[in-house]
Structure formats: structure tokens, C-alpha cells
Design a protein around this nucleic acid. Structure first.
Lengths: 392, 392
DNA sequence: GGCATAAGTTCATTCATACAACTAATCCCG
DNA sequence: CGGGATTAGTTGTATGAATGAACTTATGCC
């Protein structure tokens, strides 16, 4: 119930966005690039209207005309429309517990460039780490086309209004003025202050886009991000649910049993310990042990899966989604986690008999939060193309 | 991202709704009824446009002109606009564990009529109970102005597409075709099939409206409904969050400790038992005992409050709201529950230091779910007034 | 080469809002 | 009591966006 008066111009802006999204959406679904006529048919707008809007978008650099394909049937051949290659891009960045990275994505969703540095950042110095990230951004910014915006995914609670990272338990960071530090380290980030968000939230955005491309129209799911910590994010009808301050999804800090949080039971370190491995052994060691069928490892995963399932059952009871998506490290462990999670869901979710719970593995590729951040910024263009027409 | 082409008419419909909502909203905030000029100033629309739209709304019966108030200052006196009295109404109904009722509410939010029957409906016969509800609806339908729609609040899981009540644990009902039974019992409900929804969801709508009237513009809160069972509903920026199927908010069936659900620890029966009272003693007995300071009662409430607080902390970690509203029986117990709930929130909510949790008592009046159901139906008129202009 | 077919363009028409001038109804003040 | 100031609401013209029908362009098919 947006309380804005709709003037004549609003109409045009709305339809401009509609046309742009229609062209890019059809592309996403692996259909051939649409023509002006296709767009008119899909939107219900008159051909003349679509032509005018498309012309404006092409002139503004938000759409491109392709060379006509070899015509198959009678009639004047259509001019196919697509996203312009590499004219507009966004940079998604991420600092997580065991890596940090930068990724450039354009309007078509293509990854143009990326830099990833794997290091253990637990207890690291925020200033130094942010300086590294800033320099990675500068490395890619040179080759990048004109920027829509930037985003930074963090494993913690972020204050989006002030640009301060409030708390990242697994990094050991607290009240870090991330935006300021980055703007000093990188002219690019100074010019385009990053949108700060939780890692799981942005990963879920990428997952939503991936599922859209895979054919799910407006997917609804709970994304569970197992990194060193455990985060989650809810997507409903393709829309991310962020809560009041964007702090939704902290399942990891949910209490599962006798005062212990889920992270203390099913976090990576806890699983390693329960499997009888050294804390520093890493995920690979756990996967290897489980693959060899070692009872200590599979048993630990069973216990972790049950706890995860219980925590997720509580979440599902409260937010009502039936599709759970395992991402991050949980994606690699899905083979062993799925069954105990499903069992917990079936027995604790009140609505389970009428909405059979599903547990899927994430479709989005490696390090989805960086992609998700970039997509979030690119989404601003789709939402309101008029703002991006003339000025680059 | 609604995928609809905006034609010229969409503009008009949008602004028509905007004008209607502006008039009713200003009324809600206890300001004097606005004139056409006030609406123009508030919306940013031109005076001429507002006049045209208001005229249409008045002609269609969705707005009414009042007699000009005694003018206070120079200038032509304004014509005040309000909701028309008793021309359009909705019926909200409810079946709960210990009562059932019917309420008629008009566009101005005034309760025009109601019938409430208090009985214990645990293990009752669905057909008989629904027949009683149907007859109550018929009683009030005669006097009611033209109907926008009807709603039915139920303490359980409802399948809104098929109109079947899937499960109401505390009634002992399962897979009851409520819509069909009611349409046979009541011609009014046959003509206006009720919107089925969870009791807590509709109560939260009423609470949202009450908070809006109280001056909170677009309130965000988690409503916790303590009836015989425990339900909850999330309102974000004035909008109810229902989840995928409308089954969100089942905190009562959340697991809090060693496999026990919240209802088994903090439900009304559990509290009575813990306080050493008979299960049938009722809420009044518990309140009386607590007021007399009996340790068994206050102790039981302390325990229940802690469990409730823990469950709510888990919810808050996942959905990120900081205002909790105690409704239903919990409103009467708030004096004793508030502190333990707050304590649990402070220690278990990750974001608590940056978003101080609040625990309020519900503002909406008695049996808010009935009001909320009616308001939900009336909201359809506000959302799209064009549909309701000519035909009644 | 002519006909059918489909894509895209041109142009007059429609319709909702904006803007400005105007009328209406009141208070204030001499 | 009458004129000026002030505010509400109306009237009429202009603007801008979408529409629909006619038209042009570009192709395949026979």
C-alpha cells in the first residue's frame, strides 16, 4: 500500500520496467530471445507501445538488438532482444570466515571477473582484511563496465542504515565501520558504497535466481547456509524476507537443547569434534571420513542432522515453507544430513502431512553470496530502469 | 514485481484507492475528517483530480460528505469527508475452543452487531457447531448493510484453497469441510463463502489496525495469541506475513525442551496444572491465585514465561522483530509473564543489544479475531474500490 | 513474380492528470 | 454594511501515454 500518487509518468515507468523484465525473464527461462512482438504478446501491451519503450531502452543501453536469426517461417523476421553484453555491471563482494572475494556480474547474469582469496579470518584484524578486500575491488574495477552498485556479504549482523557491522561472532568482529574503512581502501567503493547484508540473505538471492533459471517461476524456500556458522534466509514467491532490520534468519543462534544453540551442536567445528577429528581438520576430512563409512563421522552427521532438523522444524512451524535448500558446506554433506533432517521435519512440523517437506541441495554455484549481492544491485535497474537510462 | 501491463485505467484505479485510503486513514489517526483540499495536499494529486475521484467515490457509496463544520477561519468552508455509515459491511466469525461468535463491522470500523456464545467446544461435533455458527450469521445478516464478504477464524490449520479445516488439535477436529457445512447452514455464507484463516492471523490484523489508530503508522510486531492453544502471527510494516499456505505462526507446536512443545509447557492447561489447580478451573482461577500472591501460581507463571520467552527468542532470531504483543489470555497474564519473557529474549536473541525487545499488551479489544476477519474483507474494498462502486 | 504472413511503424483517438483561471463561501476590518 | 482577504472547490484547456487501425517492410512459399 505505497502511498504515492500515480501521475502519467508513473505509468510509463512501470511499463518500461515491465518490458525490460519481460525480455530478461524470457532469456532466463532458456527460451530464444524475444522480439518486440513477443514482448507485446507477453505483457498485453500494444505493439506500438512496446516498440516505443524498447527503443528507449535500447537507446539508453539497457537492452540490445541482436542480428536477426535465420528466419524459419514466412513474414518479416523478428529482431531479437537481449541484455546488452558488459555495459552495466555490479560488484558483489564477501568476507567470510575462511575466504574473501570479489565478483563482477553484468545485466545478463554473466560473471565477468572475480578474485577469491582463501584464508582463515577468525580473529583477523578488520582494518587489514578490509584493505585487502578494497584492493581486490580495485583490481577488477578497472576492467568492469559502468557500475550499478556494490554489495558486501558478511557472516553476521549488519546495520544497513549506518553501514556498520554490529557483530560477526565467527570472525570475532564487533562494531566495525565497514563502509568507512572500505571507502578509504577503494575509490570504487567510495563512489559506490556497498550494500551490506548477511551472507545467507545474499546467497539465498542467488539461489532464488538459479531456481528461476531452472524453471521455478517464483520459488519459495528456506535457504540454510552452513559455513563456519549457520545462517538461513527465507525466500517467498521469489522475494527475500529480511525482517525488520535485515537480521532475520539467525537459526544458528536458536536454542535447540538444554541451552545449547544450533551452532554449538551442528556447526562445522562441533561436527568435526563429534567425529573425533581435529578442529582444524576442515570439511574435507569430515567428508572423507564419512565416505569411508567411519561410524564416528556418520554418527556425528546423524546427530548434527537431527539437531538441524529440529531447529528447522521450529522455523518451518513459524514461517510455513516446505522446501528447504541446503547450501554452503551443508550442500556437500547433504547425502548424510538429508534423512535425519527430513525425519525431524516429518515428526515435528505440524503441517507436514499436508505440505510434504523437501530437502534439496543448492543450485547456485560456488560462493553464491557474491553473486547474490551483485544480483541485488542489478535488481535495482530492473525495478526502475528509468533512472539508469541516460547517465553512465 | 507484479507482471501486469499498466493501462490508462490502472492509473485511475490506483489513485481512486489512494484517495479512499487517505480519507479513511486520516480518520483513523483521530484527526478531523479531511476535505477534498486536504486529500489533495496529502496525496500530491491536483485538486481537480481529487475532486473528480471523490465525486465518483461519493456517488458509488464508498465515501460520504458530512455537513460543513462551523468554519473557524476565513475562506470557503470545507466539506468534510468520511466513511459512509452502515452502507457496506463485512462479517467476521470465529470458532474457538471455548466460544464461538459473529461480528458485523462497517467501513468505518464500527461494530454494528455481534453474537457470542460461550461453550466448551473441545471434542464437539463439527456439523452441529457449524450449524450454530450458521444460524448466528443468519441472525445478524438481516440487519446488516450490503456485504463485502465474510471470514472465519479457526484455531488450527486451514486449507484456504479448498475451504477445508485440516487440523484443529484443541478442538479435536480434522479434515472438516467447513465451507460446505456453513453454506448449507446459512444462505448468507453460501452467497459469501468465508475466508478461512487462523485465529492468530486475524487477531493480528485487528491488532495492526488498533495500533494504526493508536498512532503507529505501519506497525511491526509479533502477535502472540494465548487461547487454549498458542498461536502467533507476524506483522511487518502493517502487512500480515502468512507464509506459503497461511500456516505460519505455529509457535505452540515448536519444541522448547526435551521434546516437549511450547503448548505442553505454557499452554493454559499446563499452567493450571503447574499452579496446582484443576484443569477445568479456568483462567480466572489462575489470575485470582496469582493476584493473591500464591507461590504455586506465580511460580507456574514464571516457568511458563521462561518457556514462552525461549520459544519467542527463537522466533525473533529467525524473523527479526523486536516488538512482541501478548494477546488473548496472555494479555491478562502479562503482569507476571512480561519479566521472564523479556529476560529470555535479552539472553537468547542475538540482535537484542541493538534492537531492544519490547513486550506489550494487545490493544485490540475483546475477541479480536472476529474483528480482524471483518477488517480483512473490508480491506479488499480499500485495495480496489473500483470493483465496489456501482453494484451492491 | 505474386500472394500469404509476420514484424514493426505511423497517426489519429482516447483518457486521466495537470495547470490556471474562475466561482463560491466564509471571516475580518473599517 | 460593504469591500478585501482567504480558502474550497469547479471549469476548461493542455499534456502525455497507451490504443487500434492502417500502413510499410521483409521474408517464405508456390
Amino acid at each position: 500500500m505505497r502511498a504515492t500518487a500515480a501521475r502519467q509518468g508513473s505509468l510509463r515507468e512501470h511499463n518500461l520496467g515491465l518490458v525490460l523484465r519481460t525480455v530478461l525473464d524470457v532469456r532466463a527461462a532458456h527460451e530464444p530471445p524475444p522480439s518486440r512482438a513477443d514482448v507485446a504478446a507477453a505483457t498485453g501491451l500494444a505493439k506500438a507501445t512496446v516498440s516505443a519503450l524498447v527503443d528507449r531502452l535500447v537507446a539508453g543501453g539497457l537492452l540490445a538488438e541482436l542480428a536477426p536469426a535465420a528466419p524459419l517461417r514466412a513474414g518479416r523476421p523478428a529482431v531479437p532482444l537481449t541484455a546488452p553484453t558488459a555495459t552495466l555491471a555490479a560488484i558483489g563482494t564477501e568476507i567470510n570466515v575462511d575466504y574473501l572475494g570479489v565478483r563482477v556480474v553484468d545485466l545478463a547474469g554473466t560473471v565477468l571477473d572475480e578474485r577469491i582469496a582463501r584464508t582463515d579470518l577468525r580473529g583477523s584484524d578488520p582494518a587489514a582484511t578490509l584493505a585487502v578486500l578494497g584492493s581486490l575491488v580495485e583490481e577488477v574495477a578497472g576492467t568492469a563496465p559502468s557500475l550499478v552498485g556494490t554489495a558486501l556479504a558478511l557472516p553476521g549482523l549488519v546495520d544497513r542504515s549506518s553501514g556498520v557491522l554490529r557483530l560477526a561472532p565467527n570472525l570475532g568482529w564487533r562494531d566495525v565501520d565497514v563502509t568507512r574503512a572500505l571507502s578509504e581502501a577503494s575509490p570504487t567503493l567510495a563512489a559506490h558504497p556497498p550494500m551490506l547484508a548477511n551472507e545467507a540473505d545474499l546467497a539465498a538471492r542467488a539461489e532464488s535466481a538459479a531456481r528461476h533459471v531452472a524453471g521455478q517461476d517464483r520459488p519459495s524456500f528456506l535457504y540454510v547456509s552452513g559455513e563456519i556458522g549457520i545462517g538461513s534466509a527465507l525466500v517467498l514467491d521469489g522475494e527475500l524476507f529480511g525482517g525488520r532490520h535485515g537480521w532475520a534468519g539467525e537459526v544458528g543462534h536458536t536454542v535447540v537443547a538444554d541451552g545449547r544453540t544450533l551452532e554449538q551442536v551442528a556447526g562445522q567445528d562441533a561436527m568435526l569434534r563429534a567425529a573425533g577429528l581435529e578442529p582444524g581438520a576442515g570439511l574435507d576430512a569430515l567428508v572423507a571420513a564419512a565416505e569411508r563409512g567411519r561410524a564416528s563421522a556418520t554418527g556425528a552427521l546423524e546427530v548434527a542432522g537431527s539437531a538441524l532438523g529440529l531447529a528447522l522444524a521450529n522455523v518451518v512451524n513459524v514461517v510455513d515453507v516446505s522446501d528447504l535448500v541446503l547450501g554452503g558446506t551443508y550442500a556437500r554433506l547433504a547425502r548424510w544430513l538429508r534423512e535425519p533432517v527430513l525425519a525431524a521435519l516429518r515428526s515435528h512440523v505440524l503441517a507436514a502431512p499436508w505440505a510434504e517437506p523437501h530437502v534439496d541441495v543448492a543450485l547456485a554455484g560456488e560462493l553464491p553470496a557474491m553473486t547474490g549481492g551483485a544480483l541485488a544491485q542489478l535488481g535495482r535497474v530492473l525495478a526502475d530502469p528509468a533512472d539508469w537510462l541516460s547517465e553512465p
